[in-house]
Design a protein around this nucleic acid. Structure first.
Lengths: 194, 194
DNA sequence: CGATTTTTTGAATCATATCAACGTACGTGG
DNA sequence: CCACGTACGTTGATATGATTCAAAAAATCG
């Protein structure tokens, strides 16, 4: 369980990880299992735990006043899941997070994360890189949503994350891309004819 | 010039700033003036400097294969400007950045930024908060671009940043929102009638 | 002041949404 | 392990919000 996370840390940081460091990580991260469809966070609650996905598939989404769901983030193995705003500011979340497959997570509390940042350089470096990567990815997603057609957005997404097409149902991906399931269905059919 | 930055740091960090710290900041940040329309960065170049805007208005934009400009970020006083991806990874940028008004910046190089992060806790805290705030803001912008109409997107933007309506021409804001200048013009007229 | 930039407006067109209906597949409990 | 029920994907018809293009009016800069 924890080894998956240590491997991940090694991948994202050049700095070494002592036995002491590993012990501290074990102390601050606790395992959590979720059944399919189980909630990790519900709108209105404060996101007290930030989760590292060891295994499984998750989605974060909002529900608007008309009752429509809007997927804002998807997560698979080695991704993080949680509402950063709620987690850091201790404010009620506007999002739901649930498991689309049975999941294994390692979760950390705000204080635990802070302790690790202050104590373990490799962890700090990972977190910094994560923020940078997130900002870059978000920018790409944003510009593509502003300028590209539905077809191109889907093609780009699947090219970047081929696993998405297999792990997530189409209507979830459609929602993530901000297009209707009907349009996505048509778009996929047409792309394949080419 | 530097005082504006020290004030900003105080605002974003609870940690104290010694005279020594301030001296190090002065060493690593250099002033830069830009005339109206002058470039801070051109696509193809590597973003060697990251800029803190002391005074002025700037925009970051890409130019697509059809020659159309797409504004990806806007900046006013106390905002940062630069292409993070290019800056950190030393890769050629896909963006142009220019001054929409005469600007005064404080610019820092990658090494300077790294030195400050390693040496000055207040600076590190500010940078962390910045990343968190940026991620949250990006998420909001993203979800609004996916789910809201042009009119709501404009209204939300101006509610959040009233200065934008005054400081940036409409067609720049339209591009930032990912809508055509024509549509934005109509939308504003209709909103005002209400 | 003149030149350039910015905004406005109408008409035609396009991409995507919406709604409803149907067929299929799949997981879950017995 | 099967059958049922829910979830998922497809498709057509229609509606709608936004784009594009062109041209003129208004505002702003130096």
């Amino acid at each position: 369980m924890y080894n998956a996370f240590f491997d991940y840390l090694k991948k994202y940081s050049s700095k070494p990880l002592s036995g002491e460091d590993k012990a501290m990580i074990r102390r601050n991260f606790t395992p959590l299992r979720l059944k399919r469809k189980e909630y990790f966070l519900q709108a209105g609650d404060i996101c007290m735990d930030y989760g590292f996905i060891v295994k499984g598939a998750m989605r974060m989404y909002s529900v608007d006043d008309k009752g429509l769901e809007h997927v804002v983030r998807l997560g698979l193995e080695e991704w993080w899941m949680g509402d950063r705003e709620s987690f850091f500011n201790r404010t009620p979340s506007r999002y739901h997070i649930d498991a689309l497959e049975p999941c294994e997570l390692l979760i950390v509390k705000k204080e635990g994360d802070a302790e690790l940042i202050n104590s373990i350089p490799a962890y700090t470096e990972m977190e910094m890189k994560l923020y940078q990567a997130a900002e870059i990815a978000n920018n790409k997603r944003l510009t593509s949503s502003l300028t590209d057609t539905a077809g191109k957005r889907y093609a780009d997404l699947i090219e970047r994350y081929p696993a998405f097409a297999v792990r997530f149902p189409q209507h979830i991906i459609a929602s993530y891309l901000g297009i209707s399931k009907d349009t996505l269905s048509r778009v996929i059919r047409n792309n394949k004819l080419k």
